[in-house]
């Protein structure tokens, strides 16, 4: 399944997520843009769910370091959502592996109207 990922040139972690997605069988086009905010607004990513990079897959938005397993479940179940978001840059999420530690995180689903729900929880 092709994924298009948008990031700013200076972000130090977005490439790690691209590699994670490729390692999990996704064909990822890695696009550097001047203003990622433009992409986020076009895809309707709620501001408070924002992370560094933003991607598109099969009409869904993917915001931040969303694990490939969650993306696969999204594509299987096709819920009535605009996309998934992992707000911020949690340590231990794909592309954010760190010896400094891990943080628990929750992947959110959001709709075009801005409704937000929990999609998956990931323990430390």
């Amino acid at each position: 399944m092709p994924v298009t990922s948008y990031r700013s040139a200076s972000c130090g972690c977005c490439k790690g997520w691209v590699q994670h997605m490729r390692a999990n069988g996704f064909a990822v086009r890695d696009v550097v843009v001047a203003d990622v905010g433009v992409v986020k607004r076009r895809l309707g990513v709620p501001a408070r769910l924002a992370s560094c990079h933003t991607a598109e897959v099969a009409g869904f938005a993917l915001e931040g370091h969303v694990p490939a397993a969650d993306v696969k479940r999204l594509l299987q179940k096709r819920p009535q959502v605009a996309g998934l978001a992992l707000p911020g840059m949690p340590l231990g999420s794909p592309g954010m592996e760190s010896a400094y530690g891990k943080e628990a995180f929750t992947v959110m689903a959001f709709t075009r109207t801005g409704a937000i729900s929990s999609f998956s929880q990931h323990a430390k």
């Binding site: 911020g88 840059m89 340590l91 943080e103």
Partner: peptide
């Protein structure tokens, strides 16, 4: 923290 305001 779960809303993204974590350590990074």
């Amino acid at each position: 923290a779960a809303m993204g305001i974590g350590r990074m």
